[in-house]
Structures are given as C-alpha cells and as structure tokens.
Design a protein around this nucleic acid. Structure first.
Lengths: 246, 246
DNA sequence: CAGTGGTCTAGACCACCTC
DNA sequence: AGGTGGTCTAGACCACTGA
C-alpha cells in the first residue's frame, strides 16, 4: 500500500478507500472485464499489502454500488448488463395492471448526425460534433410501447450499424459492453409531460395531442464519463414510470 | 442473544440480522425517537450480548437504509425528517434551469372523506373507510408549482386540522413525526402524463389541456405500514421529475 | 476436498466531539 | 480526559461451490 498502515502518517485517506481506488482502476483499465471473476479477497490483500478485512470492506462498498457482485463459494464478479437483474434496475417502466408484457426492441435506424447543443452538452463533446443517433420502438407484446431516440458519442460508437442492433437485446447496455467495451454504471433521468407530436404519435399509434411521458436519460461510465443521451417517450395509458424512495 | 454465538447451533440467522431486528423493534416501539441518540455501540453490544463489531455491522446496514445516522464523536441518531437532507431525498422535483426557488406550502383545506377503493387499497384500510384528505398548493417563489391531494388513514390522523398544517413545513413528514408519532421511512411512486382538468388548471394557473405530470406516491412507515397516499400534479414547463439510477 | 465468500470476535489505535 | 464512531488487523469458524 502507498500509505503506511497506522503507527505514523496521519492517514490522509483510509486504507480501504485507497483499495477501492485501486480496484476501480483495474475495472476501468479492463484488467477485469464484465462478468469475470476478480481475484479472491486473500489474493487482493496480498497484492495490496493490506489485511483481508480491509479488502472486504472495500469490496463491500463496490458491491453496494453494484459495480461488483459477490457470490458465496464462487468469488466476486464484475457486474454486467448481461445479468437480467441489472437490466431491471435500469428499467423504470411498469404496467398499470401489474404484469408487464415481454419487451422486444425494434430498431428503426442508425445514423451519424450533427447533434444539437443540448445533446453535445450532455455527452460532453464540443458543440456541433457528430454523434450516432439510434431510433427504435420497444414493443410490449405486439403493441408499440416506447419510442426511443438514443445519442452516442461518435468516437466510441462510430461503427455501430442497424445490423448490430438487430442482434442485440432490449437493453442496449449489454451491447455497449460486448461490442464497444463501454460499461454503463449510472444514469440520471429527467421526466416531463408532453403532447404527442406527429412523429411520436405515429410510432406509438396514439392520437396527436395525447399526453405522453418524456424521459430524458444521461448515462455514465466509470469516472463519470457520459456515454449516452436518450429520449424515451411513451403513453401512460397502460404503462407508468415507477420509482422507490428510501 | 437468542442464538448461541458459534460453536454449536447451525446459526439460523446471522447474529447481526438479529441485532438489526432488535434495534428495529426499539425504533418501532418509540423507545428511541426521531432525532434522538441511541445507546453507543459498546452499550448495545453489552445489552445484546454480542461483540461491538457485530453491533457495528447491524448499525452499518440501518444507516445505509437511512433509518439511523452516524455522527463521529457524537453518537448514532434516529433519522428524522426534521433534517433537511432527508427532505431533499424525498423531493424529486427540480427546476429545468437548475436553481429551484424556495418552496412554500399553502394548505387549501383538510376534510374527513370517504375514500375511493383505489385509495383504500393503497392505505390498506377496508373499502369505504373514511380518511383524511389534505389539499394544498406548493408555491415556488410566488408561482403555484405543485397541486397536492394527500390521503391519510383516519385512525392515525383524525385530529389533523388546517391550523396544524399552517404551522408545518413544506414537508408534511416532519409533522407526522412530531404531531402523530408516525415515522415515514420509504415511498413508492408511479408517474404518469395527464391533461390539465379544470380543477388542477385553476390551482396551477395553466390552461386546460396542458400536459401535466401526475405523481402518485404511497408512503410507508416501519413494518411496511402504509401511511399516506398522495397525488401530486405539476406542469413540467419550469420543473421536472428527477431520478438517479445506480 | 480445497477454495471462496460470510460471520463473529477481540484488541489496537485514530479522529472527532464535549466538558 | 474521556466518550463516541472510524479504521485496521489477525484469527477462528461457518456455508456454499465445484472438482
């Protein structure tokens, strides 16, 4: 470890915080990839020159943030969006009557476009930069349920094509991981009420002027790097946006 | 402790889980009230017959759920809605331009009413039971921002009056604690888009037919006991509903 | 069976707060 | 000075997994 354990040195940062930093570095660098096991607590303790209990506390925090997943008897794993539990944590849509029909993604297109200033700002790229735009409809059963416009920083996702999207799942984040090596860890959402314009009305098969929910989401990877800006629009006739406060 | 520590007995529940249960019981019974200090870790360890480290782990979990708050050098406290940090955790409204004007609550009335079946179901009272209904407008600066209808189980809140509400804060939860001994710990929200009807249009000073956000919230106390059902309606012209996903 | 995470303990020292 | 929570360690044993 960088800092001496206890006797001297006024412990600028707790040891376990430093361990968290080192583990994060290995996650960011791709030394341990999504879905893989990381070394055991004993090994990490030896590697970092701290006690096993200190490593445990560090991993506890990272597991609480859902960056790692512990599995007793097997080891500690890097969280992955291939895991359906993580998918459902990022899906805030629920059916009004309780049972959500299975969702299926239907990509409508994928283009390289010049982004507006709001999107450039959200993605932290310079004004007027070109970005990838993906449009899709999410079907619930056979009915169109959600109309999505997804913007991605072009330097990371330049070779994204509609074919790639067709192969992918409802969640795009598994795709980002497997095809582009980008791991989504966090998102911010802003929800508003709007009236259906001609475009969204057509894709959602609702009347113009119908009230719709607009969910704007900015998605982040490690080090708060923005990955995606997304506008999702849906009618709340059959669905709603759910949230838990604690 | 009920279960023997380790050598025999196949440890049905971990000790620290049992400690969590015991601490929760003291919270529910009101032995330790919101804002008060609870006994030190050392004292609790002696009281429960476990090591200080085990008490620490139990308190760690309860602090993570925001039921307790630790303050180094001072002690561990029962969380309270008098604390503004907790208030902001339960307020998901933010200004579109970033700075939210100070909020002020203006109660419109307080009645005892027969609740519809949806509200009875949410509050877990029998069909047709009478409940308290509070109507209020929340002002942001000088403008009406949010129109609220709050339903409360009448057996707990029977002697609620408009005068009591006038004395209270923007957050009703501090009032529930201090006046009715009910501590809110959790809420579920369902968000939908609607069109302004005559009533909400008048209170929010918007045109009829304007798209509005409807936030339905069910609030719970200890043991998942429902406390409150609330409908909040606001225009997203200047405000939005914010959320963080992790 | 060996290896992993999960629990529990005991003891040391640090950092902060109050008197 | 004496109390509180915060960090760190070392060691023991339990519970689960897979070869």
């Amino acid at each position: 470890m960088v800092t001496l354990p206890s006797s001297h040195s006024p412990t600028l940062n707790p040891l376990y915080r430093q361990v968290i930093g080192l583990v994060m570095r290995s996650l960011e660098s791709g030394e341990w990839k999504p879905g893989e096991v990381i070394p055991s607590e004993t090994l990490l303790a030896a590697r970092y020159g701290v006690s096993q209990g200190t490593v445990r506390k560090a991993i506890d925090e990272l597991a609480a943030e859902h960056l790692l997943v512990r599995r007793q008897g097997k080891g500690t794993f890097v969280a992955t969006h291939a895991d359906p539990r993580i998918f459902s944590r990022f899906l805030r849509v629920a059916a009004n009557d309780g049972d959500l029909q299975p969702l299926r993604s239907e990509p409508l297109g994928c283009w390289r476009v010049k982004a507006g200033s709001d999107i450039c700002h959200a993605l932290n790229v310079e004004e007027g930069a070109s970005v990838m735009l993906v449009r899709r409809v999410v079907l619930s059963g056979e009915m169109p349920a959600i109309f999505d416009e997804v913007y991605l920083a072009a330097d990371f996702f330049a070779d994204l094509t509609q074919e790639t999207l067709l192969a992918g799942d409802v969640s795009l984040y598994g795709l980002y991981e497997s095809q582009f090596g980008v791991r989504v860890i966090r998102a911010e959402e802003r929800v508003r009420a709007i009236l259906a314009d001609p475009v969204s009305a057509r894709f959602l098969q609702v009347a113009e002027g119908e009230p719709l929910l607009l969910v704007e989401r900015t998605t982040f990877s490690y080090s708060d790097r923005p990955v995606e800006f997304r506008r999702s629009i849906f009618s709340t006739r059959h669905l709603h946006y759910r949230n838990e406060l604690v």
